[in-house]
């Protein structure tokens, strides 16, 4: 369970401190080996991150890492504690194509051969280091009503001393908003994302988190992503909620049902246990206004009707028959819905 949630290093640290004698030695050795392996991989990726940031800076492309080793250093005080498999870097939307071209000119290969920005990021992999870099210009798809201030955050970047170098880092309110929106998009189905929040807040006890949270929630219409993240961190890991924020969270009557849904799923069913229809319903409930719900509904209909790489992997068609991917997509979608309905029926029956 700890491994699936990306918590091996934190679990090992907790057990080693609390009760090393009560854990079977073979288990402790296995955990330590896993932690060391993650740390070694994490250091290699951290080195690659510094190289990528330098390459982008040389071409005067402003970029800021979030999650991965920088978040690990910031929240946990150690670049290797947090488990990560790729490097997430935020760039401005107008710079995204140029940033992709810069990395490709230095050996990275792109998953999106045509380079047409269909989604919210470009994925690139280096064939030798196997480092996977995601160049994001948004954290969530366009049909998510975002509370992130993508324009303003660049003016609030802060320097962070990281492995002997100075790297740009998001201001706390922007990092909080991004982590919470990312969690919401993925239905918070990894406990490590909730730990990130708890440790980030705990790591800066002098900070005025009441003001930071108010700043992160931005407009009053879109405060639920941040409040939901805080609610989960509070309920599962005891993160204190600033007094001035509590009444606002208590006023949102949907917060507890949404948090209960997440708690049940991630703690009992594990990561990736929430299937697509449930995810869509969850996102729809989490949207705060009628306008946001409609935006999400239209976006999700467009998205689910558009063939993706899974449809192409299911059936290989020659170019002239590519139009058939649309009916194939609908058939696959119908089958997914039928499977979901059957699972719902069986769950209710048992």
């Amino acid at each position: 369970m700890a491994g699936a949630h990306g918590l091996t290093a934190l679990l090992y640290r907790g057990l080693k401190r609390a009760c090393p004698d009560l854990v079977p030695p073979a288990i402790l050795r296995g955990l330590r080996a896993r932690v060391r392996q993650h740390a070694a991989e994490g250091l290699l990726l951290a080195g690659e991150l510094l190289r990528v940031l330098n390459l982008l800076e040389e071409d005067r492309i402003q970029a800021v890492p979030f999650k991965g080793p920088v978040l690990s250093a910031l929240a946990y005080g150690d670049a290797t504690i947090r488990e990560f498999g790729d490097l997430d870097i935020l760039v401005r939307w107008p710079d995204a194509q140029r940033a992709r071209a810069v990395l490709m000119s230095h050996g990275f290969t792109s998953e999106n051969k045509a380079g047409f920005p269909l989604h919210r990021h470009y994925g690139l992999t280096h064939p030798e280091s196997h480092a996977h870099v995601e160049l994001h210009w948004r954290v969530s798809a366009l049909h998510f009503a975002s509370s992130i201030d993508y324009r303003g955050l660049w003016g609030r970047l802060q320097p962070l001393s990281f492995l002997g170098a100075n790297v740009p880092c998001l201001a706390p309110q922007d990092l909080l908003a991004i982590l919470c929106e990312h969690g919401l998009v993925h239905c918070w189905d990894r406990l490590i994302w909730i730990c990130d929040l708890a440790w980030l807040i705990w790591s800066q006890p002098q900070a005025d988190w009441g003001s930071i949270i108010e700043s992160a929630t931005g407009s009053r219409r879109r405060q639920r992503p941040v409040f939901l993240g805080l609610c989960l961190a509070h309920q599962l890991l005891g993160t204190p909620i600033p007094e001035r924020i509590k009444p606002k969270m208590d006023a949102d009557r949907l917060l507890e049902p949404l948090a209960a849904f997440i708690r049940q799923r991630i703690l009992f069913a594990g990561p990736d246990a929430i299937d697509l229809p449930d995810r869509c319903l969850f996102h729809l409930r989490a949207a705060e206004s009628l306008r946001d719900k409609m935006l999400y509904s239209v976006g999700i209909v467009c998205k689910v009707c558009t063939p993706d790489m899974h449809d192409q992997a299911a059936v290989l068609l020659p170019g002239v028959l590519h139009f058939l991917y649309y009916p194939i997509r609908l058939i696959r979608l119908t089958l997914t819905l039928v499977r979901w309905a059957v699972r719902q029926f069986l769950r209710r029956d048992s």
């Binding site: 369970m1 918590l7 679990l11 440790w199 005891g238």
Partner: peptide
Amino acid sequence: LLHCVRPDL
């Protein structure tokens, strides 16, 4: 698990 991964152990 939840106890072990807390920051305030």
